[in-house]
């Protein structure tokens, strides 16, 4: 009963997203070529194929997170989406950020999410995902967001640099510890406060007598 509906939702959702992105990027590709970027311009290379694969992985993973009824499958979709984003970072020659993405989001956040799912009760029947999908409002919101993203992508005068394997680790290190030292330390201080706060909230009250 539910499977056809789910399949339909998946198919329609993915097709709509891919279709809109495809049409818009095809229409906007001359603009991109003029702006110096070159997707869809020139011959279709292996790198392009990998890029589209990674992009599909990201979008498909995100769709799986939203549409899957099984929460573990949702977590797996999150894995795909995060991995896809890491791949996109690689395409942007941001190697450190890509690896940090894998390290923090897959090695940390996703594992914690999976861990939390498995430590909850009734793990045998995890059908507690969000089943209500407001198609109209969701579609409207998506359209607005898509338009916004596209406008930002094509209208903002990006500081475009030639792609290349320039290592980014050392510049990031210098930026964090020289130029932006105070914000960096403040951010870590906030994280430390959060940690201590979490411990205080979570621990048992042993002094109360």
């Amino acid at each position: 009963m539910r499977t056809p509906k789910k399949l339909l939702a998946w198919t329609v959702g993915s097709a709509a997203v891919i279709g809109v992105v495809g049409i818009l990027s095809a229409r906007l590709s001359p603009a991109m070529a003029a702006g110096g970027a070159r997707p869809l311009a020139g011959p279709f290379t292996i790198a392009d194929a990998i890029f589209w694969g990674v992009a599909a992985l990201t979008v498909g993973g995100a769709a799986a997170v939203a549409l899957s009824r099984n929460i573990v499958y949702s977590a797996l979709g999150l894995l795909a989406a995060l991995l896809g984003v890491a791949g996109l970072y690689v395409f942007l020659s941001a190697d450190f950020v890509a690896v940090a993405q894998v390290m923090i989001y897959i090695g940390g956040v996703l594992i914690l999410v999976l861990f939390a799912i498995m430590l909850t009760n009734r793990i045998g029947e995890v059908n507690i995902s969000n089943a209500s999908m407001g198609w109209a409002s969701g579609g409207l919101l998506s359209a607005v967001m898509l338009a916004l993203v596209l406008v930002v992508a094509f209208e903002v005068p990006w500081n475009v640099r030639p792609s290349g394997g320039n290592p980014t680790t050392a510049p990031i290190g210098h930026a964090l510890l020289q130029q932006w030292l105070l914000p960096f330390e403040l951010a870590s201080l906030i994280l430390l406060c959060t940690l201590i706060g979490a411990i205080i909230i979570a621990r048992k009250e042993i002094r109360a007598e």
Partner: peptide
Amino acid sequence: LDVGIFYILAV
């Protein structure tokens, strides 16, 4: 990789 050992930890 320029981030070799970090990459090994991550994957």
